[in-house]
Design a protein around this nucleic acid. Structure first.
Lengths: 322, 322
DNA sequence: CTGTTAGCGCATTCAC
DNA sequence: GTGAATGCGCTAACAG
């Protein structure tokens, strides 16, 4: 129809410098020809992609899936897509993915560190990004050594809420059941519980059981409960571990909740559907995810924001196990 | 160091027409300068992205997460990243995302249709892709009307396996518990169960209960079981529904598994961790996902492949509920 | 209001 | 073995 590419481009983008008539014609023709602007070229030219990269350790972990869901919802609301990579808790994958994504594919990055990364304290790949002022937000699995915005839940407070709840429910000799104690979040939950308990009980030390493999933990828990008849409650640092503990408690003859009260960290289908249903500290992962997405978009839109840490307060959900 | 861009480009890509010495020098310098090739420009030039788009209805559905995990693992193995979009069961989102992704962002698309799409039978967005020979693979939520490769589980066979198992375990009057019967997969599971049962029992018709909202279903199931004392087993078309049914059966005084045997479709944490653990038909979602990823890569690598349907056989997992 | 042109960052002919 | 030039598809500065 004899119009230059730039006119067409402007018309398609509804530029003010194009006459209404032309716009209508161009739009009509583009419909008919099913014109599809190439996103890649557009992104390359504009130096932005409207995409957020998300790097998480594990998709089969309900915690991360809920956070991912929150990220996705919030990102979509703000006009961003997400591209997701799974590290399988491997540092090498984490490095590879973060380099891959930040080479132009995404405008910002949301990350939960892998176990290996947290163990080895190997953060160069992220420090480099920060030096280049690339928008980066960490959530849940974070580190003080990385100077960027972080979204975390108040795990200590969650542990403390659990302690307070158990105490008020009449529990006097609780067991803390732990797995993956390498993780900062786990340490904080445990620390929150034990120090709150110490205070509540006037100096009582709480018992502690750390299991190795979650899947193989039932015997360990069974035995521990059998050998320590005085235990009348439990705080598990993880939902599945909480279910295991609940199951074991019933197996070895404890009566839940009257003589044995139990609560775990993190809410999920298991806790809700189990019978008896399990009381939990809800970490509000969806909120954590959406906050992370909001923060990374803020950083994308205006550079040179100084890092801030957002703390999401956990919520006590009392069910039938306490 | 006085080399042209093209020489550098070739050296970085390990081209045979560059001398070893030059390659070494270029590589060394690129390390030092922390050179990062821009993925966007590369993709634009090469007209491929090494990325697969995945469109699924819901992230909080464990089924899709397991499939997504399979897709991700297989894609990674084959050198592809994935970009994930969630439709929330909305046709409009599905259309929007599939257009967005196929405008150059991805080399191929893996999709599970939304409920709305399947209800309205609105498939133009995908038919268009096929016309353009864009690599497209559907899984689980598929449609015969879309002429592309599909990966499905043998849901009829799963239902039949469930029927056979219940029958052999001594169940004689089973209840089929259904939700979301709009979905093809649900229909097939139910059909597989009922026709197999018909055959096994010499013409017996099975009872059926369809619940509306899964979360509000417990009262319905309770009442139904109370009013039909002859029911001595159940097949639930969904895992959570299976757990609900199991819970209700115990609530209303049935003894599981001796006097009431129950099995559900799809395996997950709930079934495994519940007490008593729930027998299930494992749909092998991970395998479905990895097959989808393999198929879409096959199509990306050699165009003009004719569509093929891959059927993944489900596996009976007998646990303590039957 | 419309058209011309340059360039985003890279890979790839084709000369040399 | 190396380099100059072209273009992937698009937007935007500038000219008309």
């Amino acid at each position: 129809m004899g119009l230059s590419v730039s006119t067409v481009s402007k018309a398609l983008n509804d530029s003010h410098e194009i006459s209404h008539g032309t716009k209508v014609k161009v739009l009509a023709l583009s419909k008919k020809l099913k014109y599809r602007p190439n996103t890649l070229a557009k992104n390359l030219k504009q130096n932005r992609t409207n995409t957020i990269g998300v790097i998480i350790p594990d998709l089969l972990n309900y915690y991360f899936v809920k956070a991912l869901n929150g990220i996705q919802e919030s990102a979509e609301k703000q006009g961003y897509s997400i591209i997701t990579c799974i590290t399988n808790e491997s540092l090498e994958n984490e490095v590879r993915y973060s380099e891959m994504l930040t080479n132009g594919s995404v405008d910002g990055l949301i990350v939960a560190l892998s176990i290996e990364t947290q163990k080895n304290k190997h953060f160069n790949h992220f420090k480099q990004l920060i030096k280049n002022e690339f928008p980066l937000v960490l959530f849940d699995r974070v580190s003080d050594e990385i100077n960027c915005s972080q979204i975390i839940s108040n795990d200590e407070n969650g542990g403390a809420q659990a302690a307070e709840h158990l105490y008020q429910a009449g529990c006097r000799c609780p067991l803390v059941v732990v797995v993956n104690s390498d993780l900062e979040v786990i340490k904080r939950r445990e620390e929150g519980f034990t120090s709150a308990w110490h205070q509540l009980s006037g100096g009582h030390v709480v018992m502690r059981l750390e299991v190795g493999d979650l899947d193989e933990s039932e015997d360990e828990i069974d035995n521990f409960l059998k050998n320590h008849a005085q235990i009348d409650g439990a705080f598990a640092v993880d939902e599945r571990l909480g279910i295991k503990t609940l199951k074991c408690a019933i197996d070895v003859g404890r009566t839940v909740p009257s003589n044995f009260k139990i609560i775990a960290t993190s809410d999920g289908e298991l806790s809700k559907e189990y019978s008896p249903s399990l009381s939990v500290i809800d970490l509000r992962e969806n909120k954590i995810g959406s906050s992370a997405a909001e923060e990374v978009v803020r950083q994308i839109k205006s550079k040179f924001l100084k890092p801030k840490t957002t703390i999401i307060a956990p919520k006590l959900l009392v069910r039938s196990s306490s």
